[in-house]
Nucleic acid binder design. Structure first.
Lengths: 248, 248
DNA sequence: CGTTGATTTGAGTAAGATCAAGTCGGGTGG
DNA sequence: CCACCCGACTTGATCTTACTCAAATCAACG
């Protein structure tokens, strides 16, 4: 897997920080983060960020691109746990040393800001506020997984699909990936199936059902929502309004 | 809901700390924790610890008893996200102020050690190592939810049941709830159904299938495992060996 | 005893899985 | 340029798992 490590992007110029969903960094924090940064890691489309069951010595922030977290059963069945977009952090949940209980794969070319694992400890020792931010990010991720669990456990296929699409659309839009009324959706139907706990065939038919009803449009990698209200109602999906989130 | 607030149990005498799965507290930490403790909260069986959608001003550690975390859809369908046993922490994931995205109910009479929410911030400011422990506990919980998601999304009913029972047995045993070869299982089949994303009827039949095969025994609230190896194989469930965990 | 909640059983149904062929592009090599 | 290949997507048919509906049993409890 051809990978690149590029010179670090200067955090003070980070394009993500200009987005309104991220809260501004406190004085000093940005310099601290920058000083601990170990460079960019570029993972190609479909590449492995963290292999399931291997221990990683880095943690990352997604600078650009899409990825996903997953687990597999010994016999190969895979469940996608959540998706990672710019601003998300990769690998704090593996805080305890030892093998990662999940894998992370890239959906698109992925640019990651890399940090040594023990940066976490430095943060806790010297920037309690930033440490709390990290914990916030971890807790936020858990919340996303909670939602997925609810979906997979208790929503019908159609409802799951509706909820997932609204979720992804909103998240992509919130990090500036909306172009007009559409966002790029770099997922194959196999990914969607693994995220929803469905077979590929049924995923296909379910997606078609939503299309037929005019609720969503999907065309060569882009997708847009035809009727947001109807999709939300169908999926019983309303995310709680989110205050600006930290960006590590 | 009749509730009690009792005088705090002295953390230095906490019976949980003697269990081998918990790592010893560093000097000073125990006094710190004790000094921030706001007393015991006793929640009766089936009582509400945190109502879904309400903001809680406390966080808790489970001293004794069982509870569970759940989410519901607007139409009432419920998904149990994970179970809480002695030593687990309740409510850090709601670190951001605002309504809790999940509810917590007691399965048995529950004894909780209560702390003010801003204790978290105090911890981060004054005991970085303890703060890291809190984050570890949060990350650990996420891992449990990851497992549930995998189960609900990709395991068959029988596999899910097998995996859940092994999981619960091991956890109960690890906090000293094993009596001989059995542990008390304070769940109704409705709880199991909501944890596995199944209907009650199917849960019942699935459980019977495991019983018929001699893999588990369940009798009036107690349960024991007939064939651990077979259950693990059936459920494709092997937890990773866990180092001693922090206890807040 | 009567009530209530939990568990169990039976019968019929439906959602979603599986199996098996397609189609439809976008490359690649000849 | 064209044949072919491969992966993603579709479609149809059939099968299974798990859901729903309905009712019976059972135990605890007042």
């Amino acid at each position: 897997m051809s990978e690149t490590v590029a010179p670090p992007v200067d955090c003070r110029l980070c394009p993500l920080r200009r987005l309104p969903i991220f809260k501004p960094a406190a004085p000093g924090e940005l310099d601290f983060i920058l000083s601990h940064k170990r460079g960019q890691r570029i993972v190609p489309e479909a590449g492995t960020v963290i292999a399931e069951g291997e221990s990683a010595d880095r943690i990352y922030t997604v600078l650009s691109g899409w990825a996903f977290r997953f687990k597999t059963l010994p016999d190969g069945r895979r469940q996608i746990l959540n998706f990672l977009l710019p601003g998300d952090i990769v690998g704090i949940q593996a805080e305890l040393p030892g093998p990662s209980s999940h894998g992370v794969d890239a959906l698109t070319t992925l640019s990651l800001c890399a940090f040594a694992r023990d940066t976490v400890w430095q943060v806790f020792q010297t920037y309690p506020a930033l440490a709390l931010d990290l914990t916030w990010l971890a807790a936020h991720e858990e919340r996303l997984v909670d939602d997925v669990t609810l979906s997979v456990g208790r929503r019908s296929a159609l409802e799951r699909m509706a909820a997932l699409l609204v979720h992804l659309y909103k998240r992509a839009a919130s990090v500036g990936l909306e172009k007009g009324k559409a966002v790029q959706l770099p997922l194959t139907q196999a990914h969607i199936a693994d995220a929803l706990g469905l077979s590929i065939v049924h995923t296909n038919r379910t997606l078609q059902a939503l299309r037929r009803r005019g609720l969503v449009r999907v065309e060569n990698g882009w997708f847009s929502i035809g009727d947001l209200r109807a999709l939300r109602t169908l999926g019983q999906y309303w995310e709680q309004p989110a205050p600006p989130r930290p960006l590590f």
